[in-house]
């Protein structure tokens, strides 16, 4: 397995997440709330930005790095493990960054972040997993399959998000869960299903993968 290559891809994805999050911070900063005072909200931007970016980049990898790797003589098995690396490594590092921010900046918001760390990790992982599933479906069923999957995820995500928000179970603005373990459990379960789904679909997609174009 070309560990160096997959590490490079993981860090490249991470840089994208950081760039988007910093961009968000700049966009949201005002005279009243300059960027430095928004640092405590950085974990929030990292989670939301990370979710989106990892969703896209994890999906793109199947069409970008897999044909390249297989055409340069890599086994499909090595590529499969590489794909898992690029799903997990950025999540671990972003979660660690959130932890670091929470440790350095003491406030009510960052206190909530410390409680939310497992949720942050799982949310990020679910983003990468959703992207991976959509890309595998696109590979197998073409664009129509991908559009159906995106719509499906959007509906499921929207309904669940609305349900959680309307019940006041999860307030992103406060980044405080008030010790609600039910939410952690739900997010954990959903993430597990998505991650397992992404692992299975990626395995099936790579098992007999054929390079057509690089």
């Amino acid at each position: 397995m070309k560990l160096k290559m997959w590490l490079w891809v993981s860090f490249k994805n991470l840089v994208w997440v950081l760039a988007i999050s910093v961009f968000y911070s700049l966009m949201m900063s005002t005279e009243e709330h300059p960027i430095l005072s928004r640092l405590e909200l950085m974990p929030y931007y990292l989670t939301i930005g990370g979710w989106m970016i990892l969703c896209v980049l994890s999906g793109v990898s199947l069409f970008y790095y897999i044909p390249l790797s297989v055409s340069l003589g890599s086994t499909r098995k090595a590529c499969f493990f590489g794909l898992q690396m690029i799903k997990i490594i950025p999540c671990v590092i972003i979660t660690a960054l959130c932890l670091a921010i929470a440790c350095f900046i003491k406030s009510d918001v960052t206190a909530g972040v410390l409680k939310l760390l497992p949720v942050i990790f799982m949310v990020l992982l679910s983003g990468g997993s959703i992207g991976a599933i959509i890309s595998c479906v696109k590979l197998r069923f073409g664009k129509a399959g991908a559009i159906i999957m995106v719509a499906l995820f959007a509906i499921i995500g929207g309904v669940n998000g609305f349900f959680l928000a309307s019940n006041g179970k999860f307030n992103f603005a406060k980044l405080n869960m008030d010790g609600d373990s039910t939410l952690t459990l739900i997010v954990g379960l959903v993430t597990f299903v998505l991650f397992a789904g992404s692992v299975i679909t990626q395995y099936l997609s790579l098992k007999k993968y054929e390079v057509k174009l690089i």
Binding site: F63, Y64, P67, L68, S71, V211, L213, I214
Partner: peptide
């Protein structure tokens, strides 16, 4: 196997 390179920009490298 040094393949022909794709330049379409939709997929690949």
């Amino acid at each position: 196997f040094s393949r022909e390179l794709n330049v379409s920009g939709n997929n690949g490298i």
